[in-house]
């Protein structure tokens, strides 16, 4: 592939578009740090649908997700001056703040006392209705998917469900009917395998 064609490939265009979108987020975060409420609203409009969807998936409750989204954006406003672009993408920073708040909410509330979260231990590789709960089309997504595919079904399920749905070791152990030590071991070994794989694509 020539340099010119590489520059015009769909994945490159997607990457350019993604970078441009992140530049906008950076600009709005910086402006929010200076007290620009208009920029803060733009930041909210651009990111809240993704963050809200993530929180709903994590907290399994519209009410809790709305509350967590509210608290997360107050935190984003209060901490906007701490964002450092060299530490990663703006969207990832926003996602991390929101996910951490969601996880704290999980810690405080016993959200898992629900019947509809039962996983079938015979089918641990399946995520309900969606084996991989994220879309392809982005370079990072494809790379992560390729690396997740290197894990066993059980281990992959533990990683994906803990990240996406906030399952703890104990909950995974209960649901999958496997000893907690096995769950911990799956997760930690999976993380090391993932890191090695992801670094191989870097």
């Amino acid at each position: 592939m020539t340099t010119e064609s590489a520059q015009n490939s769909p994945s490159t265009l997607t990457k350019d578009s993604s970078n441009k979108a992140d530049d906008n987020l950076i600009e709005w975060i910086k402006a929010s740090a200076s007290g620009d409420e208009g920029a803060f609203k733009k930041l909210y409009d651009a990111t809240s649908p993704q963050l809200f969807a993530m929180l709903r998936r994590l907290l399994i409750s519209d009410e809790l997700a709305e509350e967590a989204l509210q608290e997360s954006f107050v935190k984003i406003w209060n901490n906007a001056s701490e964002y450092q672009p060299q530490n990663g993408k703006a969207r990832t920073w926003l996602t991390s703040i929101t996910r951490n708040h969601g996880i704290d909410t999980l810690r405080k509330r016993n959200i898992r006392e629900r019947n509809d979260l039962q996983m079938d231990p015979q089918d641990v590789g399946e995520h309900p209705g969606n084996p991989m709960p994220f879309a392809l089309g982005h370079e990072n997504s494809e790379r992560l998917l390729l690396c997740l595919d290197q894990l066993s079904e059980s281990a992959r399920s533990c990683v994906v469900r803990s990240y996406c749905e906030g399952f703890s070791h104990e909950e995974l152990s209960d649901q999958l009917q496997r000893p907690i030590g096995t769950i911990k071991s799956w997760i930690r070994r999976s993380l090391l395998t993932l890191k090695e794989c992801l670094n191989g694509y870097a």
Partner: peptide
């Protein structure tokens, strides 16, 4: 930071859901 970036597709490339209109006024 490495893990936040590496795992971010699972949070960032998902089907978006518009939050209710009353959330932003509550934030402000």
């Amino acid at each position: 930071l490495f893990w936040q970036q590496a795992l971010s597709p699972m949070s960032e490339n998902i089907d978006e859901i518009e939050p209710p209109h009353y959330v932003f006024p509550k934030i402000t």
